[in-house]
Amino acid sequence: MQHTREEQGLPRFALAMAKQTLGALRDLAPIFAVIVFFQIVVLQQPFPDMANVLVGLACVVLGLALFVQGLESGLFPLGEALAQGMARKGSATALLALAFCLGFGATVAEPALIAVAAEGAEVAAEAQFIGDSQAAQDRYALEVRLVVAVAVGIAIVLGVLRILMGWPIHRFIIAGYVLVMAMTLFAPDEIVGVAYDSGGVTTSTITVPLITALGVGLASTIRGRNPMLDGFGLIAFASLTPMIGVLGYGMVV
């Protein structure tokens, strides 16, 4: 199906892009509305730097349209082809190794995580939880990042294992929540905020489609698995384990 779409050539592509651009406009309309409303009605201030803003908005709309169009022909087929290839190969070890590498590799260089880890190091230094020197802060931030990346790697491994075995997801998540709550009681206060936030920042815009396609691809290739029931859930694991990892790190250090 992908093939025929490509053979149709440029006019087909232009039409698809036009459609995606309209969709992108609709997706971004709420942001425009909120900003205009608060800027004019609540703050009662004129718009700063209008020309720049308009160019920026055009970029945002075009970029989102390209991204969504590319998802369907690039990232989704890529993730699914990989999942099908690995499932057919039948080596669970190779599949789990891929899962760990994807989770770790996607997270360790994630800009949002770098930012949160650096802020977390500042909090820790302020609270005299670690030394005040820049070197101590840098080491702490790097360690938090590594802990989170390993935790996401483990999350994807667990999530893929769950898909292979067909285990119900809610037991894992509920057990994870209970663990987070219990660890919160014992972890130092300075790290709790960072730990909770680290769960949310790990899943980036490129990784989410790829990992979702991987999970759904696996669940639809393996016999007896339902893509709706077993295919989703990898992202949920990836948001839960970093909290456990960082809370644990806070208790050990």
């Binding site: 075009l62 970029g63 349209a65 590319g70 998802l71 022909s73």
Partner: peptide
């Protein structure tokens, strides 16, 4: 080929965005 062009579009789109 389709996957490659699609991935380039995703990257380009994300950068523009």
């Amino acid at each position: 080929r389709g996957i490659a062009t699609g991935s380039v579009m995703v990257l380009l789109g994300l950068a523009l965005f």
